[in-house]
Write a protein that binds this DNA or RNA. Structure first.
Length: 424
DNA sequence: CATGCATGAGAAACCACAGAGCGGG
DNA sequence: GACCCGCTCTGTGGTTTCTCATGCA
């Protein structure tokens, strides 16, 4: 596999991980940390503890930790060759092997029989991937429509990093990370959502591209933040050097990485402490605008929104491309979501009902049912050929053929004892 | 960088015929 | 209404052919 391909996969994994970042299915507010197959639910740390300590039966539920650290860089060349599990279904076709001089050392032998163990593992991974249906994530909705600053302050501390993501996050990262889902994939996804939610995509109230999946050239400027970097080289302040820069956010922070080796929720604390330490390190960098963090091989740029806006307020121009901060119009939202409450295990705390054009939340029974049907359809979708009439299959299998084509039985000469035993 | 060739993967076509479905008697 | 008959259409699997994507020179 070429390095180029590996890079593609790596960046794609990061982008996909970001896309699949999801909120806790219970409280819908915090970031999901655990996936429980028995409950088919992704839960945050608090809800997981609450739910799975309720009774001995629940305590026995096997949970998988949803990895929250960034897409870890490969430690060796060998790991380069191992595509991420999610990519198995999207791998490009194998190309014709070229007659290149074999590298020194023993030739690599291809297994003659399928690796059942690996196959089973793959199957297990795929089963888990089936649960990765698009779920409403408040953080994602934040990307679709940045809330007012007051709203942002009302959110919990844990949700704040997501709030700081720039609006263009919904558009830029896919390209920035090199992840380009095909139009066909996007169309299929859109059709799925449309058919299940019963809305036309050309309806103004439904903006699939608000998810950031579509390339929307005409919307490029809408809701974008113009970012300019102050380059301070050697204490000498220079002019603005870049306009409308596309800041690469750490997309890989929410990859759903199944950590089979980590079975105890107690181990989460270490990881969360590590995350907190990383964030603290970033905060100590301070400064205005973007923050670059190099952790190992990972380079992360973060945008300090407040600092950018404060810096721009000192100037005579606006950080927004059109001069005004993009306002969210609640009328653009689905009617179901206007005035909704954020309920759940969190105690029914009311939160601002502004969560993007594609907000899918609990609290609306009809919507919940639709989303449930959507999940069920995704899970039970069959890609293999479905036999409607078994008897026709049996007949076709018994029918004589020539070069794969059916032939008349009269034209099939019955010669010899073998032919004499032919069923016709 | 653009072009043409080689190659593989996947889709489509092809075939005969049993059986489903329908309308008329 | 139930039954029979005739007609049309559907769906089935293995192989070949065609189309498309991709790598390489």
């Amino acid at each position: 596999m070429s390095h180029h391909h590996c890079d593609k996969q790596r960046s794609s994994a990061g982008a996909l991980g970001a896309k699949t970042a999801r909120a806790c299915d219970s409280c819908l507010r915090r970031r999901a940390r655990w996936y429980c197959a028995a409950d088919d639910a992704c839960l945050c740390q608090a809800c997981d503890s609450s739910v799975h300590s309720a009774n001995p039966l629940a305590r026995r539920h096997h949970r998988l930790r949803l990895k929250t650290t960034s897409f870890s860089p490969p430690s060796s060349a060998s790991s380069d060759d191992a595509p991420p599990p999610w990519l198995h279904g999207f791998r490009r076709k194998a190309r014709t092997p070229r007659g290149k001089p074999a590298p020194a050392g023993p030739p690599k032998l291809e297994p003659l029989v399928p690796d059942l163990e690996a196959d089973e593992k793959l199957h297990t991974e795929e089963e888990h991937l089936l649960y990765r249906v698009p779920i409403f994530d408040p953080a994602l909705a934040e990307f679709c429509s940045p809330p007012a600053l007051d709203d942002a302050n009302a959110l919990t501390d844990e949700a704040k990093p997501a709030v700081q993501q720039p609006p263009e996050h919904a558009h830029v990262p896919a390209a920035a990370a090199g992840f380009h889902p095909s139009d066909l994939d996007l169309a299929e996804f859109a059709a799925d959502v449309e058919s299940l939610l019963g809305r036309g995509l050309d309806d103004d109230t439904f903006c699939i591209d608000a998810l950031g999946l579509m390339d929307s050239a005409e919307d490029d400027n809408k809701g974008r933040v113009k970012v300019e970097l102050d380059v301070d080289a050697g204490g000498e302040r220079t002019d603005f050097v870049a306009c409308d820069i596309d800041v690469e956010i750490d997309l890989s922070r929410e990859t759903l990485d199944l950590d089979f080796g980590c079975g105890s929720p107690a181990a989460v604390e270490d990881l969360e402490e590590q995350e907190a330490a990383e964030e603290a390190a970033m905060a100590s960098d301070g400064g205005c605008g973007t923050e670059a963090v190099a952790a190992g091989r990972r380079m992360t740029l973060r945008l300090d929104y407040e600092a950018v806006i404060a810096a721009w307020s000192c100037k005579d121009c606006s950080p927004w491309t059109d001069g005004e901060r993009p306002q969210f119009n609640p009328d653009d939202c689905w009617p179901d979501f206007t005035g909704m409450m954020w309920g759940g295990a969190g105690g029914g705390r009311e939160v601002a009902p502004v969560y993007g054009e594609l907000g899918m939340v609990a609290g609306d029974g009809g919507r919940e049912a639709k989303v449930t049907r959507y999940r069920e359809k995704r899970r039970t979708r069959l890609f293999s050929k479905k036999i409607r009439y078994e008897v026709r299959k049996l007949n076709a299998e018994k029918r004589p053929r020539m070069k794969g084509r059916f032939v008349k039985r009269a034209a099939f000469p019955a010669v010899g004892p073998a032919a004499a035993s032919f069923p016709f």
